[in-house]
Simulated scan of single mutants.
Amino acid sequence: MRKTNRYPVEQANSLWQIYKTVPFWKVVKNFIVIQLGRYTPFLNVKNWLYRTFLRMKVGEKTAFALMVMPDTMFPEKITVGSNSVIGYNSTILAHEYLIKEYRLGDVVIGNDVMIGANTTILPGVTIGDGAVISSATLVNRDVPSGSFVGGNPMQVIYTKEEIAKRMEEDRE
């Protein structure tokens, strides 16, 4: 189950009320910084932009590939550990605007995590250390440490223990 906080709205759907939930100028600033980051080929500059201007928590030697899209409204709710790779054109969401409510949730990505290209991570998800996410996966719930997951909806393909067993068998 994802860990999100729900905020009911009245009248029109929650997206029509966006600037009651997040300041307009914050969104403008975040959008500009994210667009710079999406195209910047220098990983250390990208991480500096995200830490400094978006208040994201980004670990050392983490690599955001070209065109990664962090949450525009609430990037400060994203934490990425050290030595992780976020694949090309992936999206990390910390919000959901729905008809009768909007939801916010922290996204925590551990250390040494590999996220394949075109993956979408929904709000309120924790991805454990050493996890591997296959390309084009919809991460709609927590990912156990060391596991290999993929698909839409996401499924565990191999657990940490199954991977260790396979590696042991390969050595024999």
Rank of each mutant, 00 (worst) to 15 (best):
K3P: 01
L54C: 08
T40Q: 10
R141D: 07
G151N: 13
V132L: 11
R51W: 06
G151V: 13
K26D: 02
L36K: 07
E172T: 11
G116A: 09
R6A: 11
N140D: 07
G128P: 07
N5I: 14
T119L: 08
W48F: 14
G81P: 06
D170W: 13
G128S: 05
A12Q: 14
G130N: 07
L66T: 10
V139I: 12
R6K: 15
M114I: 12
S134I: 05
N13Y: 15
V80N: 01
I92W: 01
T79K: 12
E76V: 02
V149D: 02
V107D: 02
R171G: 14
F42S: 12
Y19T: 09
D142A: 06
K160A: 13
N140L: 02
A12K: 14
L54E: 00
M67R: 13
N44T: 14
P75F: 00
T159W: 06
Q155P: 04
E60K: 15
V113F: 08
T52I: 08
A12I: 14
F53D: 00
P23E: 10
K61G: 04
G81M: 01
L122G: 02
N5G: 06
N111W: 03
I78F: 01
R55P: 03
N83W: 10
E60G: 08
K165S: 15
A131M: 06
D142C: 07
Y50F: 08
N111V: 02
G116T: 04
V125A: 04
N118S: 11
K100V: 12
G124P: 05
K20Q: 15
T120Q: 09
L98W: 08
S145G: 03
S14K: 12
A63D: 06
V132H: 10
I18E: 09
S147A: 15
V143F: 03
V132Y: 10
A12V: 14
S90D: 08
E169F: 05
T62K: 11
I18T: 13
P41W: 02
N111L: 10
T21M: 11
V85W: 15
L104S: 05
D142R: 03
D106F: 01
T120F: 01
S90K: 07
L93M: 15
A65K: 05
V156M: 13
K3D: 12
E10D: 14
L49P: 03
K57A: 05
F74C: 12
